[in-house]
Design a protein around this nucleic acid. Structure first.
Length: 288
DNA sequence: CGAGTGCCCTGACAGC
DNA sequence: TGCTGTCAGGGCACTC
């Protein structure tokens, strides 16, 4: 999604930012500050889209956004950042959705002049915060390394797992060991790495950490290549369904044979999330 | 502080 | 037909 948004939004000025069919609140904090600002880049951390904003040169600063003193005592402009999380059902598009529209951004002249944020179940966020100030977003503030970056190391993953007594799957979903792993991809990665999802994180054998790191990368890379996983709602910016569903080995396949060993895939609940695994390939382990 | 639970919200679907 | 109940899961507030 970031890759689709980048060429569309980079350099565009937000002329108007409107909340539609949604009450102002923490999920839309600071949205009123977006108008008049330029989107200078489209970045991402885990599942959060991060778009740095800037006031056009020479533009008047609105009240409450005056320059603040920097660390060196010099005057320094405090930039804002647009933070978007799709939650479960969030969709960004350039065509008006049939319903559940929450945010409309009008952009300056050019193709595709309107960005629509649709979010049926209202779990998504669309907010403007001072750049890097993630006090309203504790998960983002404590986010682990990007899974496809060199910073995602076996040693680092091992340290993060060793700090938690929770189930390894719950630990992965916290976003602290690594960014961007959601419920579907946690199940898939643990199946590839042959780790039972309820294994206490600090009891994952050292020899299985490298396979887990590699499996997380494999699953996320493959899903990105397939434009994501569409169960019901997810759509790319162009409105296409993601194709990774077809490649899922365990998620949504309870009762079907494991494609590695033929054993029936189990479905259990871990940390209030539906969890799918092969009881033969992924043996339960306890803390030693 | 960390682990565990429940909440938010709506649509799809099963069961009666 | 229409009602009720359950499930789905992002993050986060709350309790212990």
């Amino acid at each position: 999604m970031r890759r689709e948004l980048e060429p569309w939004l980079t350099g565009r000025t937000i002329v108007r930012a409107e909340l539609v069919d949604a009450a102002p609140g923490p999920k839309y904090a600071g949205l009123e500050r977006a108008a008049g600002q330029v989107i200078t880049a489209v970045g991402r951390r885990g599942k959060f889209l991060l778009m740095p904003l800037a006031r056009p040169h020479g533009a008047a600063q609105p009240r409450g956004a005056s320059p603040v003193a920097g660390a060196a005592g010099e005057k320094e402009t405090r930039h804002d950042e647009l933070v978007v999380h799709l939650g479960m059902t969030g969709v960004i598009s350039h065509c008006q959705p049939p319903g559940h529209l929450r945010v409309r951004l009008e952009l300056d002249g050019g193709p595709r002049p309107t960005l629509y944020f649709r979010d049926t179940r209202r779990f998504g966020r669309f907010m403007v915060v001072p750049s890097g100030d993630y006090r309203l977003l504790p998960t983002l503030a404590a986010m682990g390394p990007e899974p496809l970056s060199p910073e995602f190391t076996v040693a680092g993953l091992q340290r993060a797992l060793a700090r938690s007594e929770a189930a390894v799957k719950t630990c992965l979903l916290s976003q602290r060991p690594v960014a961007g792993v959601g419920n579907i991809y946690a199940d898939e990665a643990l199946w590839h790495a042959r780790i039972h999802p309820e294994t206490p994180a600090d009891a994952v054998p050292g020899a299985r950490v490298a396979p887990l790191r590699d499996a997380i990368r494999l699953v996320l890379e493959a899903s990105i290549a397939a434009q994501g996983t569409t169960l019901n709602d997810y759509r790319t910016v162009a409105g296409e369904a993601g194709e990774f569903l077809e490649q899922l080995a365990v998620y949504g396949h309870a009762g079907e044979p494991c494609r590695r060993c033929g054993t029936e895939i189990s479905r259990i609940v871990v940390g209030a999330r539906s969890t799918h695994f092969c009881p033969r390939c992924q043996r339960r382990r306890s803390r030693r």
